[in-house]
Amino acid sequence: MMQQYRAYLVGENGVFRSAEAFEAPSDSSALAFAKQFTRLGKVEVWQLGRKVAVLESEQSRPPEPSRPTLTRQ
């Protein structure tokens, strides 16, 4: 069964700047969908009156550490 969600783009001052309503079958699917908006800033994902998660902005995330390469001798 599909559930109603909203992804809110949060401004630097903590005020919602915009919202995107969408449907998803589960919280994990909703988070995967909402992740696309993190390129614009921090995103709060809600399902009705329940806050599901806060996704940090891609811009504020530290770069992924590189994994050491194994070399054979």
Score class of each variant (00 low, 15 high):
37 F>Q: 07
66 S>Q: 15
6 R>V: 02
17 R>Y: 02
3 Q>G: 08
4 Q>F: 07
33 F>N: 07
16 F>V: 11
7 A>M: 04
49 G>S: 11
26 S>A: 15
62 P>G: 14
58 E>L: 05
46 W>G: 00
20 E>K: 09
43 V>R: 01
16 F>E: 03
18 S>Y: 00
36 Q>D: 14
25 P>I: 15
29 S>A: 15
72 R>N: 05
57 S>V: 03
49 G>K: 07
3 Q>Y: 06
73 Q>I: 11
10 V>N: 01
14 G>Y: 03
26 S>G: 13
22 F>T: 04
10 V>H: 00
68 P>N: 03
53 A>D: 14
18 S>N: 01
46 W>V: 01
18 S>H: 01
27 D>Y: 11
73 Q>S: 08
42 K>C: 00
5 Y>H: 11
36 Q>V: 12
53 A>H: 09
55 L>N: 08
2 M>T: 15
9 L>E: 04
59 Q>I: 13
31 L>C: 10
3 Q>A: 05
20 E>Y: 04
15 V>N: 05
43 V>G: 02
32 A>P: 03
8 Y>S: 04
70 L>P: 13
68 P>I: 05
34 A>Q: 00
61 R>P: 00
56 E>H: 08
26 S>Y: 06
60 S>I: 06
7 A>K: 01
28 S>Q: 14
40 L>I: 03
3 Q>K: 14
40 L>K: 13
23 E>F: 14
1 M>W: 06
26 S>C: 12
10 V>L: 04
15 V>C: 00
62 P>Q: 12
17 R>S: 08
49 G>F: 11
59 Q>N: 15
58 E>N: 04
56 E>N: 07
31 L>W: 12
40 L>A: 14
40 L>R: 13
43 V>P: 00
57 S>L: 08
23 E>R: 14
55 L>V: 05
7 A>T: 01
13 N>R: 09
8 Y>P: 00
70 L>T: 13
12 E>I: 02
2 M>G: 07
43 V>N: 01
59 Q>Y: 06
71 T>L: 15
13 N>A: 03
35 K>Y: 14
62 P>T: 10
50 R>Q: 10
18 S>Q: 05
73 Q>N: 06
46 W>A: 00
51 K>N: 08
9 L>W: 02
14 G>F: 02
39 R>L: 12
16 F>K: 08
51 K>Y: 05
54 V>S: 11
54 V>M: 12
64 E>T: 11
6 R>L: 03
26 S>F: 09
67 R>T: 15
1 M>R: 13
59 Q>L: 14
73 Q>G: 08
31 L>Y: 10
34 A>E: 02
46 W>H: 10
63 P>R: 13
36 Q>N: 15
31 L>Q: 07
48 L>A: 08
72 R>G: 00
15 V>W: 01
56 E>S: 06
32 A>L: 13
70 L>S: 14
68 P>R: 12
69 T>P: 02
22 F>M: 06
64 E>A: 11
67 R>G: 09
14 G>L: 01
72 R>D: 03
28 S>N: 07
68 P>T: 09
48 L>Q: 12
20 E>T: 12
52 V>D: 05
30 A>T: 10
68 P>A: 10
69 T>K: 06
17 R>L: 11
32 A>Q: 10
28 S>W: 04
11 G>P: 05
53 A>Y: 07
